[in-house]
Design a protein around this nucleic acid. Sequence first.
DNA 1: GCCGTTTTCGGCCCGACTGTTTTCAGTCG
Length: 571
Amino acid sequence: MTITQEIVAILYRISEMLEIKGIQWEPIAYSKAARNIESLSENLADIYKRGGIKALMEIPGIGKGIAGNIEEYIKTGKIKKYDELKKSIPVDIESLNTVEGLGPKKIMLLYKKLKIRNLADLQKAAQQGKLRKLPGIREKTEENILKAIEFSKKSSERKLLGYALPLAREIQALLRKQPYIHRVEIAGSTARRKETIGDIDILITTSSPQKAMDFFTSLPEIKRVIAKGATKSTVVYEDMQVDCRVLHPEEFGSALQYFIGSKDHNVAVRRIAISKGYKLSEYGLFKGTKRIAGKTEDEIYQKLGMQWPPPELRENHGEVEAALKHSLPKLVELKDIQGDLHMHTTYSDAKNTVEEMASACKALGYSYCAITDHVSPMGIAYGLTMEKLKKQRKEIDAVNKKLSDFTVLHGAEVDIKLNGELFAKEKMLKEFDIVLASIHQGMQRTKEEQTKRMLKAMDNKYLNIICHPTGRKINKRPGYELDFEKVFNAAKENNVFLETNSQHIRLDLSDVNARAAKDSGILISVNTDAHAVDQLDSMEYGISTVRRAWCTKKDILNALPLNELLRRIKR
DNA sequence: GCCGTTTTCGGCCCGACTGTTTTCAGTCG
């Protein structure tokens, strides 16, 4: 964990502990501060080094108090307030909080009465029937807690977008098939295409709410029904919690707006509503008691004098102000993509042939693709040797002759060695139409070492694109740190492009980093890194990521037509 | 604890659902 991540985690812990103590508002301030720090592209240590406590206080949601906490942590590795809170409530709140139905009040009650400190204590007490003796808890709650412990053990992690989105679409399709269900929309963080999803929100309109709730709560993949009401039900579907809400058509737009979120976006929008003398809720935009908008999101934003912001932008990272000024960017779309510049074939570690990959790309509507097999130390077995390279070139030439209105570029994904050199001699590099490079080992180096390594790699005159620049794998490893300012400067100087890798476990550059890259004037290449034909459609996830990074068509390398692309890349 | 186009005090979302009650507290989103 980086210092920034450590501080974010502590701020969340402080927020939780304050809440358990029954303190009002302060917990909200702490969690808000933590959230805002998470979405920064610069790390806290650097910000502090640059401008001390004053610079910290420029971060939204951070004032004197929290800036002081951060300074204390950077200087001493400790925060006194945090240590004191921990001492007064020695409870593993983080894990207890993952249990559905357990909130601050019950956690405090459990600790005070039964000295319950963690999941194991809780499970034991519940199994012994001790919980039901507490005020406000009887058998049913005890049962639910036991079930929830099981679920929380299995699904402590947020799920990848690449898992949640298809699941949400599957449920959406099932609901849409029912004649009495009219509209079905996916809301929540899935609609905003966040890289990880906690639970899925589905909104419907129906002529028969009862039937709709019955149908939803009895879908075949459902493992458990957590709640079932007249207008709202919650279930566990496969490994995810799914909420379904029934709405009136007149309030569908306001409900969609409300449930797409994010929370921070909604707070900002509601504030604008209030300033204009309105009140905005999930039931509509009201002037007094009169609903003046609610059917569509568009009419709500319009009445507020705002442009409709695409869900991917709704994080309160400047989109509210831009929407008021009618200066939102026209975000890049999947259909703008002209080609995919990163994919593998049977020449290295993938399933399909050059022709199969190229034909599939053409079928997706692209006008070009680049075949980029590995050139790596492991490549003695899998990668391209000089001999294989010549063979592959011939094969690509043949495919190019065969496919009309489509161009296959001969590329490679070359490993970056520990010293920053590329794992291929000039003799080989100059044979390719396009050269990608990436770090596949030696991830444990320091920020300084990795930055130096990256800069050295970008010095290579044949290099065009750095793939998955931080090497992170979501929920698996954080990726190495880089001095992005230096990396971006070097990229610009050397005419190197950075990738947003579309594999849903990577999404690297991330939304935050891609936005910083874009702001530095660097074009981003959104690629699938497909190792089989059926992975080529993961382009959608990369596009979502760069849309979250405010990218327009102009910011994306592979939205360029082939002739312009070839002009832009150095050869 | 943070914030300010009601600015140095007084807001900071609130309604649905559950399980416990006997009119409501706690949790969730």
